[in-house]
Structure formats: structure tokens, C-alpha cells
């Protein structure tokens, strides 16, 4: 069929169809398009509703609060008068996820490089799948494993770190333990490894062959090729990936809640037992929360929501800018 007659046939067919059931076609189109568009808008509505309802239900509790919400280290919303503040939660969240990021990023880059450039081609995708398995394990299982397997093994490491690096305030303190922010960070690091490494791996595999060969033809070793061609090309992708990992670590609830034991107040000695995060605190305190207690938890969840929103948006912006650049 020539293109000319094809167009004619198309036009003819459309005319016939329109003539036959013009209304059904049009109405069906309008309904379906409306439903599709409506679902798109629903996504926006859900996001807006999350913000609105969290604010709305947080306000009464915040009004009852007799302590400074931002600076107080106590969390006693069930007492009368209610006194609660997020200082300890914010400290624990930021420190544990930042530390997780510091531990996970270099390892994740190493894994990505291993799969993209070092492992034998034939098994590379299989190895990638092995790392992705880490992402398929639910956080409750990480929590169980972290609490019963990892934590007991962390005690020795914590003591050693305390002895060697105790002069750094973070690693200081008199009683390094196993249910510490440090242990939580290690669990978080393992959990965010697959996200960072899989995005980095994809970015590395997109490095144009021409750049790789340019470096090799100059007489670069494999590492020098990576340094000259791969890392500059993949840098912003890796940064975006790490930030997504950071967002995930900040919001992680159950694994952290299971690993950490409760101790009140901000403790900069992250090797010592205790500490709390926004998410873990919600999971742990919800069972015995009163009305005000629930409102207080919602208020703290709102703060977490805003923080992760900012981190995720920034991460997306970095990744998106990279797309334009390439």
C-alpha cells in the first residue's frame, strides 16, 4: 500500500466510524481521557492531602505543648502538661543517615564499578541481581537481623573504635554498646547500598565507548581509564543516587526502631546505646500514645515528611540536570 492510499484509507475509515457511532467514540474518549487525567491529578491531590492532614492533626497537639517543639530534647506528649520536642529525634535521624551515607557511598561506587568494569561480562547481570536482592529484603527482616545478629557483633567493633578514636567526640563516651546509633547506621548503610549502587551502575554503563577508548588508547590502566572517563561522566548521577539513598535512610523506620534501645536526650557519643529517630520514635511510641500523643507523633512525622521531600527533590534535580547536560 502506498502512503498516499494509506492516508486516504485512514481518513475514510475515520469518517465511516464517526458517521456510525460518533457519539460512543467521542463520549468514550472523553470519559477515558478524563479518568486518566483525573488519576494524574489524584496523585497531586494525595500529596497535597498528606501535607494538609498532617498539619491539621498536628496543630492541636502543638498548641498543648508546653515545651519548645524544635529545641526540647524530651518526648513526653502523654503527660499532663504535654512536653515534647524533636531535638533528639532530629539529631538521631540526621546523624544516623549521614553516617550510613558515608559508609554506603564508597562501597556502592565500588560495587557499581565492579559490576560494570571488573566482573566477567557473562556473570555481570547475575551479580547485579545479587545486589538487588539486598533491596528485596524487607526492613523488618533487616531489623530482626540487625538486632539479633549484627548488634552482638558490633559491640567489639564499637569498643575498638572507642579506644582508638575516643578523642573524637562522636566516638567518645564511657560505655560503647551494641544498640547504638552507630549500629543503626551500619544497618541503614546496608539497606541503602542497592539503591546507590544500582543507579551508579546504570550511569557508569552509559559512559560512551568513545570516552573509554580515548583513555585506553592513551595508555591508561583500567583505574586511570575510570578516573579519566567514567567518574567525571558519572559524578552527578552518583551524587543524585546518594541523595536518594539519604532520603531512604532518613525515612527508614522499623530496622532502626528494632536496633536502637531507648535512652532520653541527645547523646553525641554515637557508640553508646540509645538515641532515637523521627520514624523509629513514631513506631515505638504509637502503641501507648494518647490523643495528644498521636498529634505529637504526627507533628514529628510532618517534619520528617518535609525533610525527606527536600532531600528527594534536590536529588531529582541533580539527576535531571545531568540528563540535560548529557
Amino acid at each position: 500500500m502506498s502512503s498516499q492510499s494509506g492516508v486516504d484509507a485512514a481518513v475514510g475509515a475515520r469518517h465511516r466510524a464517526d458517521g456510525r457511532r460518533l457519539s460512543t467514540g467521542r463520549a468514550g474518549d472523553r470519559i477515558f481521557a478524563g479518568a486518566a487525567r483525573g488519576s494524574g491529578i489524584l496523585v497531586l491531590a494525595i500529596m497535597a492531602a498528606i501535607a494538609v492532614f498532617l498539619v491539621w492533626k498536628a496543630i492541636p497537639a502543638l498548641q498543648d505543648n508546653k515545651a519548645n517543639f524544635l529545641t526540647s530534647q524530651d518526648w513526653n506528649p502523654n503527660a499532663t502538661p504535654a512536653k515534647f520536642g524533636i531535638a533528639q529525634l532530629a539529631f538521631g535521624t540526621v546523624v544516623s543517615s549521614a553516617l550510613a551515607l558515608i559508609i554506603a557511598t564508597p562501597v556502592a561506587i565500588g560495587i557499581a564499578l565492579f559490576i560494570a568494569f571488573y566482573s566477567p561480562r557473562k556473570i555481570a547481570s547475575g551479580l547485579g541481581y545479587v545486589v538487588d536482592l539486598l533491596a528485596a529484603v524487607p526492613s523488618i527482616v533487616y531489623g530482626l537481623w540487625g538486632l539479633l545478629v549484627l548488634a552482638p557483633n558490633m559491640e567489639g567493633i564499637s569498643k575498638a573504635l572507642n579506644t582508638a578514636l575516643g578523642w573524637i567526640p562522636f566516638f567518645g563516651g564511657d560505655s560503647p554498646g551494641k544498640n547504638s546509633i552507630f549500629t543503626a547506621s551500619v544497618v541503614l548503610a546496608i539497606m541503602i547500598l542497592p539503591i546507590i549502587s544500582s543507579i551508579s551502575r546504570e550511569v557508569f554503563l552509559q559512559v560512551p565507548r568513545a570516552h573509554v577508548e580515548a583513555a585506553l588508547a592513551l595508555g591508561a590502566t583500567r583505574w586511570e581509564m575510570i578516573r579519566l572517563s567514567v567518574l567525571p561522566y558519572g559524578r552527578s548521577g552518583v551524587i543524585g543516587a546518594s541523595m536518594l539513598g539519604l532520603g531512604r535512610a532518613m525515612g527508614e523506620t522499623i530496622a532502626v526502631a528494632m536496633v536502637l534501645t531507648f535512652a532520653p536526650g541527645v547523646n553525641v557519643h554515637i557508640l553508646e546505646d540509645g538515641g532515637n529517630t523521627f520514624a523509629a520514635n513514631i513506631a515505638k511510641s504509637f502503641g501507648e500514645a494518647t490523643v495528644t500523643g498521636r498529634g505529637a507523633l504526627i507533628a514529628s512525622g510532618l517534619v520528617l515528611f518535609v525533610i525527606t521531600l527536600v532531600v528527594n527533590m534536590a536529588a531529582r534535580a541533580v539527576v535531571a540536570r545531568r540528563k540535560e547536560f548529557v
Binding site: 570516552h211 577508548e213 588508547a217 592513551l218 595508555g219 591508561a220 567525571p232
Partner: peptide, 29 residues
């Protein structure tokens, strides 16, 4: 690696390192 330093190569499509300056491109090797 030593062979490629001794036997240089120019490719079909120009492939300067995109993130490097002119100077750094020449100095890379």
C-alpha cells in the same frame, strides 16, 4: 597499557574528554 602509550591512536569521531579543558586534554596522557 605500555603498548598503547607507544602506539597512539586517533578515532573516527573526535573524542576529547568532555569535562576537561583543552590544556588538560593534551596533558592527560
Amino acid at each position: 597499557v605500555a603498548v598503547r602509550r607507544t602506539v597512539g591512536m586517533v578515532f573516527q569521531r573526535p573524542n576529547p574528554f568532555p569535562t576537561m579543558s583543552i590544556y588538560d586534554n593534551v596533558a592527560a596522557g
